[in-house]
Simulated scan of single mutants.
Amino acid sequence: MSTKHPIVAITGSSGAGTTTITRSFQHIFRREKVKAAIIEGDSFHAFDRQQMRQKMKEAEETGDQHFSHFGPEGNLFGELEQLFATYGATGTGKSRKYLHDEAEGAAHGQPPGTFTGWTDVDEGTDLLFYEGLHGAVVTNRVNVAQHADLLVGVVPIINLEWIQKLHRDKNMRGYSQEAVVDTILRRMPDYVSYICPQFSRTHVNFQRVPVVDTSNPFTSRDIPSLDESMLVIRFANPKGIDFPYLLSMLHDSYMSRPNTIVCPGGKMGLAIQLIFTPMILRLMGNREQATM
């Protein structure tokens, strides 16, 4: 953790909805004039798209049916922790970009599914903002979570997470349903070992719970909308959280536990703004004092 160079990390698995949270944070940064270094978790995968396919094939040939992007073998956890540690100490560090599609590849003159070279994070940023799979990961070799000043988990119930992944990978990436289901099954051991434990280390968790039938996610034709969901917001440490204010601003919300608010899913964007704007301003205030 660092007062001068704070780190905010949004963590959640593929299909969880971290992009929605990230968009809301970017609104906060723009409104409050906070210059953030944006880091995508995909940048710290160990292999590019073609290499990953080859590694999975090799793993299957040796009887390993669970090699995935969720576990340590498929990622550069050491480099990610080094970035967090270096940024916290100096305000910079090494990162790169994963080129997801043709447009991103063309912008860098490279094929999609590859990485750019490693470069230094721009100097003069106010904070580092990470969005990806492993912002709070801890193994017997690395502890990424210890370096973050604000950790946010995005954790829809598992059926909703699968529905979102199925729709995204089928409609946007052209995968068959069978291929997506195979991916879900292959990742499950690493999901249990490396993704789930992170949500016990986060400061705030956002869990979306549909109020429509998602009992068989593999036959669902539509992704339940925010208005068809409730949002469970859990604070690891409720001290200093103005719950009466949040309840008054989030219509039809209530507290289910002393550290948990439940509100309509359609209020998600507002909830993020209300909860995290004061936290970001507090980080910036502490940073300003530390640099005087």
Score class of each variant (00 low, 15 high):
Phe206Tyr: 14
Arg257Phe: 11
Gly12Ile: 09
Tyr191Arg: 01
Ala290Trp: 08
Ser215Glu: 11
Ser95Asp: 13
His203Thr: 11
Asp101Val: 14
Val209His: 08
Gln82Lys: 15
Glu81Trp: 07
Arg49Ile: 02
Glu102Gln: 15
His69Leu: 15
Val138His: 07
Ser253Phe: 07
Val181Asn: 04
Phe115Glu: 03
Leu246Trp: 04
Met188Phe: 15
Asn216Val: 09
Asp42Ala: 14
Ala103Tyr: 12
Arg96Gly: 04
Gly88Val: 07
Phe44Arg: 02
Ala36Met: 04
Asp120Arg: 07
Leu166Val: 10
Ser215Gly: 10
Val180Met: 06
Gly41Gln: 06
Leu281Asp: 06
Lys33Arg: 09
His100Leu: 14
Glu178Lys: 13
Glu178Met: 11
Ser13Tyr: 12
Val155Cys: 10
Asn171Asp: 15
Thr125Asn: 11
Phe115Asn: 02
Met284Glu: 03
Leu166Ile: 12
Ala85Cys: 10
Pro258Leu: 10
Ile233Ser: 00
Phe206Arg: 01
Thr202Ala: 10
Val142Trp: 08
Tyr98Phe: 15
Lys94Tyr: 12
Glu123Trp: 10
His147Arg: 08
Ala103Ile: 14
Val154Lys: 01
Ile28Pro: 00
Trp162Ser: 05
Thr11Trp: 10
Asn286Gln: 15
His100Trp: 15
Lys57Leu: 13
Asp42Phe: 09
Ala106Thr: 14
Ala179Cys: 02
Arg141Met: 11
Thr3Pro: 03
Met172Lys: 14
Leu185Trp: 13
Thr18Val: 06
Pro112Tyr: 08
